[in-house]
């Protein structure tokens, strides 16, 4: 068996005295797409922050491609091939589209190549290359954010609430892109409120409540059992 892309063992994390993650165990095989579901406040976003190095884990182990990376800095992780698209705004609103793309070259792919890929996938960005990112629509901003996932050639992609505040049609479009990325062999972990949308592109799903993973399995199983797992009754 090959080394999994991501392996989290007993991850704990806290804000002040309030513990948010209480021993998260999760393994994502290479090339798999996993959806992480769970109610508000379950700790999903915190978990993403721990993986991406934005939040310190108080205990537990984290392996990325078999290498121990717990509490590595997020910029170092980004340069070895972890691409994180955080919740909410994930572009620089006061920079132009082109400048945003230029910064994406920090991940290791030359700026020209980044732009070439981005404009090929999203021709609309080419039209707006000189526009400030903050003045574009939410969907266009998210396309710009996704350009990084596309162009920086990551090994593992973390998507946190890609659909937040976006029209369903645009969400579908974005998920088509996610599927395309997945097909190139990139491992993906996505957190999503639109359960169905996320489950449709994923190979596995996990449910988190109260800072722990309470169920993992095939998307269909999870879809059926989710209500049971969380509410105790359907």
């Amino acid at each position: 068996m090959t080394v999994p892309m991501l392996e989290a063992i007993g991850i704990h994390a806290a804000y002040g005295r309030i513990e948010v993650l209480r021993g998260v165990d999760l393994t994502i095989p290479r090339g798999a797409v996993m959806a992480l579901l769970g109610p508000n406040g379950a700790g999903k976003s915190t978990f993403v922050k721990v993986i991406s190095g934005q939040k310190e884990a108080t205990a537990g182990d984290l392996h990325l491609g078999g290498v121990h990376v717990r509490n590595a800095s997020s910029d170092a992780l980004a340069r070895v091939g972890l691409c994180t698209v955080p919740e909410g705004r994930s572009v620089f609103p006061n920079l132009t589209v082109e400048e945003n793309l230029r910064l994406m070259s920090y991940a290791g792919v030359p700026a020209d190549a980044v732009m070439e890929t981005a404009f090929r996938y999203f021709p609309r960005l080419l039209e707006r290359r000189r526009q400030l990112a903050g003045t574009m629509s939410g969907g266009e901003q998210q396309m710009l954010a996704m350009s990084r996932a596309l162009a920086s050639d990551p090994a593992l992609l973390l998507l946190d609430e890609l659909s937040m505040g976006l029209a369903p049609l645009i969400v579908e479009e974005l998920y088509d892109t996610v599927r395309e990325i997945a097909e190139t062999g990139v491992t993906i972990l996505c957190i999503e409120q639109f359960a169905r949308t996320a489950l449709r592109v994923s190979d596995y799903a996990a449910v988190m409540t109260g800072g722990r993973i309470v169920a993992t399995g095939e998307p269909e199983e999870i879809m059926e059992s989710m209500a049971d797992v969380i509410l105790g009754a359907a």
Partner: peptide, 18 residues
Amino acid sequence: TAMRASVDNPELLQLFGG
């Protein structure tokens, strides 16, 4: 550009690898 970016959001700049 990274200097201007870090005015807005240094954490995001880190996620970019800067």
